[in-house]
């Protein structure tokens, strides 16, 4: 077989194939439900209900989507430049550590000043974490996929050390967690009484900011050029190494904001289970959004909904929550295939 590019794919092709990918994902979900001895329609219904069936469910989904928007943006920015940042998890924790450190009363600032200072410091920490692997890539040609992946494990051990040592909460009853943030450092709720904090608004704002950077600035143009063809970009006079470093700083900073927003907005302290893999799930979010920053918001809410919905479905119907991970992986793989097939046709010969 051979692949031939299609210059102008028909509307049927460019809508039908991605839709087909989603249908396939739903079929997989139904099969898994059947396997677990549950009614597929009831299972899907329960997932939908758990994700968006009530005001509470919907807010829970938006809360879960908040860190995913940040990590999804981090991945989207990096992958656009073909910088394979798989270390968003480590950068998230770097942001969370800084937030937990600076938010416990060592900075005598009013809330309106304190929160931005902490956010910026968190971004800086995340950016620095990614800088190492990127410099190794641009200077020595060390593959960043493996180094960023390995950093995730190192960072989690570092957090574990901090929580059992220097950052341990003395009032924590031996539980490995950091002391609670002071009130001035906490992100307030958007509406009183509703469990949705300003981190969500910051996430939306970040998505718009990234969109502006990507479509309206020289850096955005350079990032795309490097991603499309680094050799050609270098030939055209674009400083590829420097663009990579800038991309990394932006990507690491965005991932760190996920940690900042989770600690300052939702949890109020640092724990080892702060992130159930938000850094990795961000890859799925970004890919489903075709690396489009505004699309990231939509796909993050969708992905968060599946996870929140699967949690509540699992309690009711007894299908293991890992169904959500299988669905996300299926959606990712079928979607990249569908997108490829919209642009190419197969010749059997």
């Amino acid at each position: 077989m051979r692949l031939e590019p299609i210059p102008n794919p028909s509307a049927l092709r460019s809508i039908g194939l991605p839709a087909g990918a989603l249908v396939l994902t739903v079929i997989v979900a139904s099969a898994l439900a059947l396997l677990a001895g549950a009614n597929p329609f009831a299972t899907l219904g329960l997932i939908l209900k758990g994700a968006a069936g009530s005001k509470f469910a919907l807010l829970e989904t938006l809360n879960r989507a908040t860190p995913l928007i940040f990590t999804g943006l981090a991945i989207a920015v990096a992958f656009r430049a073909k910088l394979w940042n798989i270390g968003a998890e480590a950068q998230l924790y770097a942001g969370a550590i800084v937030t937990a450190l600076l938010g416990t009363g060592i900075l005598p600032l009013p809330s309106a000043l304190l929160i931005p200072v902490i956010a910026l410091a968190a971004m800086l920490a995340g950016a620095l974490i990614l800088l190492g692997p990127v410099l190794l890539k641009t200077r020595l040609g060390v593959d960043e996929v493996v180094t960023t992946l390995l950093f995730n494990f190192i960072m989690l051990l570092f957090v574990s050390y901090l929580l059992e040592g220097p950052m341990k909460d003395p009032m924590g009853m031996g539980w490995p967690k950091s002391p609670a943030l002071e009130k001035a450092a906490r992100l307030p709720r958007i509406v009183d009484g509703l469990r949705l904090h300003w981190g969500f608004a910051l996430a939306l704002l970040s998505a718009v900011a990234v969109w502006v950077i990507q479509t309206r600035t020289t850096l955005g143009y350079e990032i795309r050029a490097v991603g499309l063809n680094a050799e050609a970009a270098r030939f055209a006079g674009i400083p590829v190494g420097r663009v990579m470093v800038k991309t990394a700083l932006l990507s690491g900073g965005l991932a760190a904001l996920a940690g900042f927003s989770e600690v300052a907005g939702l949890k109020g302290n640092l724990t080892l289970d702060l992130s159930p893999g938000f850094g990795y799930t961000g890859i799925i979010v970004a890919m489903l959004a075709l690396l489009n920053p505004l699309g990231v918001v939509v796909s993050a809410i969708f992905v968060a909904g599946v996870f929140v919905g699967a949690d509540s479905m699992s309690r009711a119907a007894g299908v293991p929550t890992y169904i959500a991970d299988i669905l996300m992986a299926t959606a990712l793989l079928t979607m990249v295939l569908a997108l490829k097939l919209t642009r190419t046709r197969i010749r059997w010969r």
Binding site: I86, V145, Y280, M328, A329, L333, V336
Partner: peptide
């Protein structure tokens, strides 16, 4: 045969297989 990104597919397979 489909020539999809080896990074994305690999990470997807890791997620799928462990899930």
């Amino acid at each position: 045969p489909f020539g999809l990104s080896q990074h994305v597919v690999g990470l997807g397979v890791t997620l799928l297989a462990s899930a």
